[in-house]
Nucleic acid binder design. Structure first.
Lengths: 340, 340
DNA sequence: TTGTACGCGTTATCAT
DNA sequence: ATGATAACGCGTACAA
């Protein structure tokens, strides 16, 4: 009821007046500290209820220096994989008492650098960055102790805490599985292989490793490049693949999202999966179980990744200068209709 | 470099000392106000750069009473539809200078009520709530002027600003389209029809209206209920539908996500789409264009909805007591392979 | 053009 | 057990 002049907000002072105590006592009640008599506590609680008071998080933050918010920067929250991942991060963060503010980077290095700057400007307690483009965030870093955790994609060689995908191992297992099913001419649909830290590069390596192990070769290279990791790009690549006239009986797609597009492209060209060509993806997005044919895929443990990332942020807040760690998510090969 | 005792943070005072000016001058430079000489301005900017100073948003917020953050509460960010929608909301909010904090409600009334309480506790400047379960948020409301915008689903009859989906009209058009394609026994796969404000109810009404208009009847009711709007539930419903033995040549699915499950269930039972049965969804999630067969669907303008919702929040911040409005998103019927 | 004093709402410290 | 006072970092109003 009694309101402050400022912004129509009920403050601790208002509550204190209403309950006939000092605002310090109100603070103690609000924060469940002891040293407050039962009668007074009840009186204060009643005053809080009646006035509709809520703690002002900004003021608390100003004192504590902590916002209780961690940022999550992903290329595009609308992509199934990142939406799925974000859901896990939000839950894990909630369990640790953090809120999550989501930023979209547009899969561009500039967006990712912005997200880091932004996170610090807004004084987020930490940032989980799902980087796919940035390759040298040295300059933006500045403070080596800022809780910045890389999630999933790029690997910056120990400069940051990093929760990695089993890129190489997973793709190798996927490729080997295709070989086990009798495929001899296995193509890969992926991004352009550019540098060393790239997720694309690592998955490509896993693919090559499996081919080598099985004595299969890929000459001419059965690599069909993408401009981005969209369904549309996947479809286009599949069409190019078929139109190339090369003999191909198995396809490794760099992500499930791309695989969905590949599936579409193959259908456009009249090829059947798994009859004419087998197909395997990476990520195990929820859709993969339900599409027809259901999609075989590499299933990293997303929940594990999200939890680990949030834990790492929390740990680094506690100990800003402890050495960084790298953790690779466990994965499972989901065998479904597309490779039967 | 020079740091404050508090939390290892560089403050305006530090910058002022470093530049040999008062902190007010620093403030003026930071906020691009004029009344600062060019030489001094440069000196201050240099000091900011060197010290790595960043404005403390909490302190600014404490003064202004505004956090610059709006909340977005959705059932589950991992579902394609909500991820997609969130992407648009984040973009639209960014254009208006807001950040977005995402909350998951788990499609439960309790979660939705929590989101409202939470939003106010954290002093978000507003909240966009994609409610699917809450039916009487009167109690949580409290302050009639709080910028709370309902997005997409439930309709609370004018108590809030509301950006609605074309539920009835869209489903009616979808059903009519099936009829146009020659379907005579059109089923609907949807949630349980409970109350009056429910999205499910409205879509069901649109379906019935179209049937009535075409002189088709649905007796016994060709309604196959879902427990939730998941792909899994869609598949189960489709299986029940086929197993019921009822003659059915068209299916309206309450959402695209459900339709994906239905597609799977029909495949499990050996039925082909559109050969044996035609299928149409609602939402036009990105996947719909790419699956095989591509999914006909009702495509509301998601970008429009997100922009409208953010605008409404902004308007209500400016004028807390202006009358609420209700806006229905335009939609388009996307005709694809599943109803050819 | 620049500086000073004060208040925003909360919490830590110290006193009673 | 409770209260007074002084920060936290920034912005406003006013003075110089």
């Amino acid at each position: 009821m009694s309101q402050n002049a400022g912004h129509g907000m009920v403050t601790m002072n208002d509550v204190a007046r209403l309950a006939g105590v000092s605002k310090m006592t109100v603070s103690n009640v609000v924060n469940n500290r002891d040293g407050v008599g039962d009668v007074v506590r009840q009186r204060v609680l009643e005053a809080i209820r009646r006035s509709g008071y809520r703690v002002n998080v900004s003021a608390r933050t100003l004192k504590s220096g902590r916002t209780g918010v961690i940022g999550l920067a992903v290329p595009e929250i609308g992509l199934p994989y990142f939406g799925h991942l974000a859901a896990h991060v939000i839950e894990a963060a909630g369990r640790q008492g953090f809120h999550v503010s989501i930023e979209q980077t547009g899969a561009a290095a500039a967006g990712e650098a912005d997200a880091i700057a932004h996170s610090r400007t807004l004084h987020f307690d930490g940032l989980i960055l799902s980087a796919v483009a940035l390759d040298r965030p040295d300059e933006q870093l500045g403070d080596a102790g800022y809780p910045l955790v890389m999630l999933g994609e790029q690997d910056f060689g120990g400069r940051f805490d990093h929760v990695a995908m089993p890129n190489e191992e997973g793709t190798k297992a996927a490729t080997a599985h295709l070989a086990d099913q009798g495929c001899r001419r296995i193509a890969i649909v992926t991004g352009r292989v550019l540098d060393d830290v790239n997720m694309v590069t690592r998955r490509y390596r896993g693919y090559l490793a499996a081919l080598a192990e099985r004595g299969l070769d890929a000459d001419p290279p059965l690599l069909f490049p993408l401009n981005d990791a969209s369904m549309e790009a996947g479809r286009d690549a599949a069409c190019r693949m078929v139109d190339s006239g090369l003999e191909i009986d198995g396809v490794v797609a760099v992500t499930d999202t791309v695989a969905l597009g590949v599936l579409r492209g193959l259908a456009d060209r009249g090829l059947r999966v798994p009859g004419d060509v087998r197909l395997i993806g990476f990520d195990d997005v929820p859709e993969s179980r339900f599409i027809v044919p259901s999609l075989s895929t590499v299933a990293p443990d997303h929940r594990w990744m999200a939890e680990r990332a949030v834990e790492l942020v929390a740990e680094r807040i506690r100990a800003p200068l402890r050495p960084t760690g790298r953790y690779v998510a466990p994965f499972e090969l989901m065998i479904r209709e597309s490779t039967r």
